[in-house]
């Protein structure tokens, strides 16, 4: 029982990070129909930039802030300079562009940073808290709390602000959004910026537990993508639930089977979802009106 609790907790922790990556996918996909495979690099940039700023002597909170700002800038630039000029290209071409951007960002990170693994000090120490026989890292609670706050803020934004409604409107019907005077390009800009910021925060939160390096983004993007698929592409609720589920499945797989099969779990889920339930758990059938 204690063992199960231990696995479940570590599953929830990584799951929260997958959920944030999946939310990033969802935001951008809803605003623009693009699957942004550079989403994992946002996570990497958040962690790595913080590490290197802190190493350079900048106080940690400021280093984190800079990392979020830099990553947000990268997200905006990705849209403005790589996606936007190719507007009108097929979705497949746009996805290829994001994959190219992901490779590019990894390459740049390798040069600007380095190829080693790095960590950050946990926010509230490294002494595990005993709970029901399981040992829980304080940083795990920070990750969960951070993810919960981000989800709550996003929800408030969408429910309470007209800009939030305009994002929903753009996702629901781009033509109609343009006809009421929404500059939908700005909305997509905005979704890239917010997705990048969320990715950066995820990277900062998880680095004290999982370490970071220039290439952590690839696997995170795939896990996050699996989470978004499982939840149903386009559904923010699905992204969160999918992320947590994939984290749990992985942790249980690693705990009870073998940690070498852990990554395979996510790919298996992608396959099963694609074949058996392409709508995912919370996905809607997209109704196209004529």
């Amino acid at each position: 029982m204690a063992e199960l609790l231990q696995f479940a907790f570590s599953g929830l922790t990584v799951g929260a990070i997958y959920a944030l990556v999946a939310l990033g996918f969802t935001l951008i996909h809803n605003a623009s129909d693009i699957i942004n495979f550079a989403q994992g690099e946002f996570v990497m940039l958040g962690g790595m930039t913080t590490v290197f700023m802190a190493t350079a002597g900048i106080p940690l909170p400021l280093a984190m802030l800079i990392a979020i700002v830099v990553t947000t800038g990268v997200g905006l630039a990705l849209h403005r300079f790589a996606i936007e000029p190719a507007r009108g290209a097929s979705p497949v071409a746009l996805i290829m562009i994001t994959i190219g951007a992901s490779v590019f960002l990894r390459g740049v990170a390798q040069i600007v940073f380095d190829k080693r693994f790095h960590s950050l000090p946990p926010l509230f120490g490294a002494d595990p808290i005993q709970f029901g026989g399981a040992a829980i890292l304080p940083q795990s609670l920070v990750v969960l709390a951070g993810a919960a706050v981000i989800v709550a803020l996003l929800w408030l934004f969408v429910e309470r602000t007209l800009l939030g409604k305009a994002v929903i409107a753009t996702a629901a019907n781009r033509l109609a959004a343009r006809l009421i005077g929404v500059d939908t390009r700005r909305i997509v800009d905005f979704s890239f910026a917010v997705s990048a910021a969320i990715g950066a925060i995820a990277g900062i939160l998880i680095t004290p537990i999982a370490l970071t390096s220039y290439d952590v983004g690839t696997l995170l993007a795939l896990k996050g993508f699996a989470a978004a698929m499982l939840g149903g592409i386009g559904s923010p609720l699905g992204a969160v639930v999918g992320g947590l589920l994939i984290g749990m499945i992985e942790a249980l797989c690693a705990g009870y089977v073998s940690s070498s099969y852990k990554d395979a779990a996510a790919f298996l889920i992608i396959l099963v979802v694609l074949i058996a339930m392409p709508q995912g758990l919370f996905g809607r059938v997209k109704v196209e009106r004529v």
Partner: peptide
């Protein structure tokens, strides 16, 4: 302002 063909209201809102 345009009222588009097929109404095109924002269904989820």
């Amino acid at each position: 302002s345009q009222v588009p063909e097929g109404r095109q209201v924002f269904a989820p809102l």
